[in-house]
């Protein structure tokens, strides 16, 4: 089996993987980072979104071996110790989840969105969420949470 090395949440990891190992399986099964979820496994739902070299990608549609040398950030890498990331706090404050299954992907997508777009308006947030599906909430509180998280992120960046 070939070996892959990448940085995950700031730590360098090197493991043997099969060619067909998906990034999401590598994260969940090999590294036991089970915060990243598998929803549809067909790149529709976004439960598996992580950041690869700073951009949101669907880890169910990325090969682990294609991440050789990459910097991966998962939901586990977002908080600063016990202090939640402002986007995580916003999802909590605005009740931006019900069952929570889509939440890691929603939050990783939201953080990527804010990094690119600053403080997006509601219409933009809804359009940007087209690759993330939630089957509980009807999205209203997710959109509110992202708007609030965007404000908080931009404030904390000074």
């Amino acid at each position: 089996m070939p070996k892959v090395s990448m940085t995950v949440n700031g730590e360098l990891v090197s493991k043997m993987v099969e060619g067909r190992t998906l990034l999401v399986d590598f994260l969940r099964d090999t590294l036991k980072l089970t915060g990243t979820h598998i929803g549809c496994d067909t790149s529709q739902c976004g439960a598996c979104v992580v950041h690869m070299d700073g951009s949101a990608v669907k880890s169910c549609t990325t090969l682990a071996l294609a991440c050789q040398g990459a910097e991966i950030m998962t939901i586990e890498g977002l908080a600063d110790g016990e202090t939640l990331h402002p986007m995580q706090t916003a999802f909590n404050d605005h009740h931006g989840l019900q069952c929570g299954y889509c939440t890691p992907g929603m939050i990783m997508t939201a953080v990527d969105m804010v990094k690119r777009l600053g403080v997006p308006d509601e219409e933009t947030i809804r359009a940007e969420l087209e690759g993330n599906i939630c089957r509980c909430t009807g999205y209203h509180n997710i959109v509110k949470a992202i708007a609030a998280g965007a404000e908080a992120m931009n404030k904390s960046n000074g």
Partner: peptide, 9 residues
């Protein structure tokens, strides 16, 4: 094309 995460790959 697709959605933001798909466009990133």
């Amino acid at each position: 094309i697709g959605d933001p995460a798909v466009r990133n790959r």
